[in-house]
Write a protein that binds this DNA or RNA. Structure first.
Length: 924
RNA sequence: GCGGGUGUAGCCGAAUUGGUAUAGGCGCCAGAUUUAGGAUCUGGUGGGUUCGUCCCAUUGGGGGUUCGAGUCCCUCCACCCGCACCA
């Protein structure tokens, strides 16, 4: 390679623009099916086109891009596409507030963001871009919807749903947080409505299994908890009118302790159970409940409320007649919306019984304790013991296990099943996926209502049902499709006048299958091309935020399984077989591996000042009160300053030029305004303000500005270096210069001449050893998503190369190998600068299509190792030894060490533990 | 309340899984260069210290197992995330 290069300053602007254009012109990032090469489908979550890429997008996408580039250099044919999840509320809000039509706003944002992605240096194949609000995309969302309807996996049903008055739409259970809409934070109310659903619960059991996929434990756990499997039994009670009143219970063994029943106020049998003298009270309670928002209903320690219906039901196990109440602590959407109440052994039932003076009847004798006595119980008993007063299962042991693993539950289920009074059952917390939205900017649900009230699908050849682009958002709130005659009026299959469904699909449905559309985004005949799918599916690595754990990541798993079961992968499986690929099990899960990144928070501010009062005692201060002052304004106090350090109850406070030690005894008061409630010493270290970046807080860092100032390579390198990726953390605007200095150094090393002088074999071997160790290290780290340590290893190599460049003791070949290695290992992380230097050094072709530099273990092997010698576990000496040293030699050397002898003080070693060549520990 | 995670230097973070704690970076200090600032370069810095190629302490606190613990166990504290009347 040429060594006499003209030194130039590293000018990122021109370099990045040049390579962006060159790569695009050369089609460097086109991804095409090639059955002769192993494939790798890398996918990262597609953004909502809000208008700008923010730091969070960079943090998620840049490392994902680096990983895809790494896989490409490792020899894989890599597909790494990008698109836009483009339906959703913000576009409508822009339409309402600024009178911009949603598609106008959306497509302008997409253009801008696509350009930003390009500035980032991503290897996206833009020919495969998919945009969910394109008719060519949502046509297939509608098509899938119809297939699910035909397959019995989508249905229209009347159900209690979350209605957001502020958004004028229903929301999925997953979109309601703490009883509030997750987007606006406004309360949500419960409403009975006819809506479209996907039969997610039918897959609850299969979704609990994560066999064959490598997903992070926290996400698996969240999904498992969200699905919420409970084992128990369904038991049929009977009302006095002879109606069957079914309940689900996890504790059928306590049936003999049921002293009343509670129905959700919305339960269909309430009307018939209610007696005339209770009707007024019952109706009033139902109305109150309906008006009450979800958030009020959930308030943590609200007193139990409820009303007696006047009706009774018969307990099938002992024919006891027990009163039936209604109460809002029984949810209409879980189980059958009715419970048997066993106050002696359930906390909520106990509370309700005490509130309304209902009987409590214990049926468990607590293990190792006196029998429960009622009246007199202070709380319900939920521990282990022995069943009492329970007919056939009296005397059976009960423990804390769930379901049949608990002997008493097993006995009760067996007994119920023998008599056909009930049966073993499993219940899930998760509900069917509500996909109707009363919004304009979404894919229309392709159904029509006939005049006779029938619902029928729009024929496939009439898809897509297009969104009209002449809607009037100013006319009223809510869905403008509702008063758009041109959209509303259509004909049914008989040619008779019919009305279109005006609900649109939840955008999560659009993003449940987008990985398929990338395979053939322009396909007009089918949602995805089986030939492409046969090669690329499934997604090998998926990256994105873990906040989607119970929404997108659950929905897309469901969707893949549903498609599999209605045969939509059959053609793909056939294509796989024709290419000799076994399709077995490849359509069970959409993404084989998933990794999540953390969040970049706003910049940490300086520590708040503390104001300490108390007295000075022997050089330090004993505090009587400590309070945190927001900002650094003037304040009166014995010590006023910033907390530098805290150990237990001792603070180091920097007050002006001196650092004062402040002891905070338990009697002192601590006041931290930003942490509510009573504060204590332990919270003092944690009061630095760290917040999410947001416009309202004025702490947003615009990646475009950083790119202009430092270059995209620097921003990428910094984001990958500064954090533990899974964790994220606060932005630190000072740190980025370190990444830039690193790239400046790489530039100098790569573009300056190297003249060997006084070459030694040792120097060559040492450099080559480090080079190959770095190859191994970076390879491992890129493989396992540990970008920060990969960059750190490259920085170390940089440091060593700078030293070597001054010493000039290695030959041209070793130097070249080292510089090339640095460039190749850095190429996925900083694609522009490495490409430029590669070309300047006369490299053949793009640096990004070079094979990954694999480590040669023989070269990387250490010849000598620093052996640590410990005495009683404390390091006392370090000796350079050969890597192949034997145990005997190691012990001999260790005992011969003068410094070790000093610590032995003539004493005889009791025991010597040797781990050659790393360590010898001498115990005396 | 239930479930999960985290805690290492002034800050972000390493530690090849029980074997040299603090790699790498930021910051900071000193010097060089510069009209100045910034940038850059050189050296230093990690707590204490009698400043030494020495020693002691140190991975949120306390205790334990082990020749040896950031890593394993017990316990307490703090912070973060998820769920939250789910029968």
């Amino acid at each position: 390679m040429a060594t006499n290069l003209l030194w130039m300053k590293y000018g990122h602007g021109a370099i990045e623009q040049k390579w962006r254009e060159r790569w695009e012109a050369d089609g460097l990032y086109r991804a095409r099916v090639d059955w002769d090469r192993p494939k790798h489908y890398a996918l990262t979550m597609l953004p909502y086109p809000s208008g700008e890429l923010h730091m969070g997008h960079w943090y998620a996408v840049a490392p994902s891009d680096a990983r895809a580039r790494y896989m490409r250099m490792k020899g894989y044919n890599v597909l790494f596409p990008m698109g836009f999840d483009a339906f959703g509320l913000p576009a409508e809000n822009a339409a309402i507030q600024r009178n911009i039509h949603p598609p106008t706003w959306t497509y302008a944002n997409i253009d801008r963001m696509r350009g930003q992605f390009k500035s980032m240096g991503t290897m996206f194949d833009w020919e495969r871009e998919a945009v969910s609000c394109d008719p060519s995309y949502y046509r297939w969302s509608q098509w899938f919807f119809k297939r699910l309807v035909e397959g019995g996996l989508a249905y229209r049903g009347e159900a209690v749903v979350n209605w957001s008055p502020s958004l004028q739409t229903v929301l999925a259970n997953e979109q309601v947080i703490d009883g509030k809409d997750e987007r606006t934070g406004q309360p949500v109310v419960q409403k009975m409505m006819a809506q479209w659903f996907f039969a997610l619960t039918r897959y609850a059991e299969e979704l609990l299994s994560f066999d064959g996929i490598d997903w992070p434990d926290p996400v698996r756990l969240m999904q498992t908890n969200w699905i919420g499997r409970s084992e128990g039994a369904e038991v049929a009670f009977t009302t006095e009118h002879g109606d069957r009143l079914e309940v689900f219970t996890t504790r059928p063994d306590t049936l003999w302790g049921a002293t009343f029943m509670v129905l959700a106020p919305e339960h269909p049998l309430v009307a018939s159970l209610t007696t005339d003298d209770q009707r007024v009270a019952v109706t009033a309670y139902q109305e109150t409940t309906a008006r009450r928002s979800e958030i009020e209903r959930m308030e943590a320690d609200r007193e139990k409320t409820g009303v007696f219906t006047g009706g009774y039901a018969i307990n099938p196990v002992n024919d006891e007649r027990i009163p039936v109440w209604i109460a809002d602590y029984v949810l209409p959407t879980y189980g059958s919306g009715a419970i048997m109440a066993v106050p002696a052994h359930d906390g909520r039932d106990f509370e309700f019984a005490r509130q309304f003076d209902l009987p409590v009847f214990p049926v468990i004798h607590p293990a190792g304790e006196e029998p429960l006595v009622e009246p007199g119980m202070a709380e319900s008993y939920v521990g282990p013991g022995v069943m009492v007063n329970s007919g056939p299962i009296t005397g059976v042991e009960t423990n804390l296990e769930k379901g049949r693993k608990n002997p008493s539950v097993a006995a009760a289920i067996d007994w119920l099943e023998e008599r056909s009074l009930g049966r073993e059952a499993v219940n899930y917390r998760v509900r069917d996926w509500l996909i109707s939205r009363q919004r304009y900017w979404g894919s229309p649900i392709p159904m029509v209502f006939t005049e006779s009230g029938e619902v029928e699908p729009v024929p496939d050849d009439a898809l897509p049902v297009l969104l009209p682009d002449d809607v009037d958002f100013q006319k009223a709130t809510g869905n403008p499709l509702n008063w758009h005659d041109g959209f509303l009026q259509t004909v049914d299959s008989e040619g008779e006048p019919a009305r279109r469904e005006t609900d649109t699909l939840d955008t999560f449905m659009c993003s449940s299958w987008y990985q398929l559309r990338y395979l053939s985004p322009d396909d007009e005949l089918e949602p995805f091309d089986p030939e492409e799918a046969a090669y690329w599916l499934p997604v090998d690595v998926y990256t994105g935020g873990a906040e989607h754990a119970t929404m997108h990541l659950l929905y897309t798993r469901f969707f893949t399984k549903a498609l599999r079961d209605i045969g939509l992968y059959d053609a793909t499986a056939e294509a796989m077989r024709s290419h000799g690929r076994d399709p077995d099990g490849l359509f069970d899960e959409p993404m084989l591996m998933y990794r999540s990144q953390g969040q970049i928070l706003g910049e940490e501010r300086d520590g708040d000042f503390v104001v300490v009062d108390g007295e000075r005692v022997e050089g330090h201060v004993v505090a009587s009160s400590v309070r945190v002052e927001v900002g650094a304004g003037p304040a009166d106090g014995l010590v006023v300053g910033e907390i530098v350090r805290r150990t237990e109850n001792v603070l180091q406070v920097r007050a002006g030029d001196e650092t004062v030690t402040v002891e905070i005894p338990g009697s002192a008061t601590v006041d931290i305004p930003s942490i509510s409630g009573t504060n204590d010493v332990n919270q003092l270290k944690h009061h630095l303000e760290i917040q999410r970046m947001s416009k309202s807080r004025g702490n947003v860092i615009d990646p475009d500005d950083l790119v202009a100032q430092y270059g995209a390579d620097t921003v990428r390198t910094y984001l990958m270096f500064a954090y533990e990726w899974q964790k994220g953390g606060p932005w630190d605007s000072r740190g980025i210069v370190g990444a830039r200095r690193f790239l400046d150094d790489v530039w100098k090393l790569g573009t300056s001449a190297y003249e060997p002088d006084a070459v030694t074999d040792e120097a060559v071997a040492a450099l080559r050893r480090l080079v190959h160790q770095t190859r191994a290290k970076v390879d491992r780290d890129m493989e396992s998503f540990k970008w920060n340590t990969a960059v750190a290893a490259l920085m170390s190599l940089r440091n060593e190369l700078q030293t070597v460049q001054k010493g000039r003791a290695v030959d041209e070949a070793a130097w070249s190998e080292a510089v090339d290695t640095l460039l190749l290992l850095l190429a996925p992380i900083a694609p522009f600068i490495t490409e430029e230097i590669w070309q300047l050094r006369g490299g053949e072709g793009s640096v990004h299509v070079q094979p990954w530099p694999e480590a040669d273990p023989d070269v990387a092997k250490d010849e000598s190792v620093t052996m640590v010698v410990q005495v009683n576990g404390k390091v006392r000496d370090r000796i350079e030894v050969g890597a192949g040293i034997t145990e005997t030699e190691a012990i001999e050397l260790a005992l011969a060490s003068e410094r070790v002898q000093g610590f032995l003080e003539g004493g005889e070693p009791k025991k010597v533990i040797a781990r050659p060549p790393k360590l010898v520990n001498i115990v005396v």
